[in-house]
């Protein structure tokens, strides 16, 4: 655990105890990162500011739910921000059509790719992403970092919506086998 994550952990623990100074220090320490994440996902400054407020109000209310052995403090904070922004994104881009088309879930059979990845000992996400086919890794990255929906990904990679979803789900299974249970 890095010194920085220990500090964030201490600030988060004190925030859970309603320590206002710690909450303010937490904002100073990690607010810019979370604003960066919100901006990237929402692509709209005013909305990102709004979302960042929601994120920190939520952190103030729920800091006692942080469980140290499940996530690093930074990862927990990032997750709160991402969840909130993605909720906003999906509410904004209600693809009625998308939801309907996606309803039929392609089922997942093990793929040769998954087998190959399981055989490797790469454990970090970068290693595992590196083992995916280039465009598939790019799709995962675009979804996570840019918040692109299936519709946007399907347009970008010029494949039908359901094909896009099959791709991504298979990529996720391969990734998960590579990452292990830790």
């Amino acid at each position: 655990m890095t010194a920085q994550s220990t500090d964030l952990g201490a600030l988060l623990a004190r925030t859970a105890l309603r320590d206002r100074a710690a909450f303010s220090a937490l904002y100073s320490a990690h607010g810019a990162k979370l604003f960066g994440i919100c901006l990237r996902l929402l692509q709209d400054r005013a909305e990102a500011e709004d979302a960042l407020q929601d994120v920190f109000v939520k952190v103030w209310m729920n800091a006692d739910r942080y469980v140290p052995e499940v996530a690093s403090p930074a990862a927990w904070l990032n997750t709160v921000a991402r969840n909130l922004c993605i909720d906003r994104l999906r509410a904004r881009k209600t693809g009625g059509v998308e939801a309907e088309v996606l309803e039929a879930l392609p089922s997942l059979e093990p793929t040769p790719e998954a087998e190959a990845i399981r055989a490797s000992d790469g454990r970090r996400i970068e290693d595992c992403m590196g083992k995916l086919e280039g465009v598939r890794a790019e799709a995962v990255r675009r979804a996570y970092v840019e918040g692109e929906s299936y519709l946007e990904l399907a347009e970008r990679f010029e494949v039908p919506l359901n094909t896009m979803r099959s791709w991504l789900r298979r990529s996720l299974i391969s990734l998960r086998e590579c990452l292990g249970d830790a």
């Binding site: 810019a32 994440i37 960042l52 998960r176």
Partner: peptide, 18 residues
């Protein structure tokens, strides 16, 4: 688990002062 595994992907996002 997914949240923890994928979090490093957020490293490429640069902080922006609000």
């Amino acid at each position: 688990r997914w949240e923890a595994h994928l979090d490093p992907l957020a490293e490429e996002v640069m902080p922006v002062s609000p």
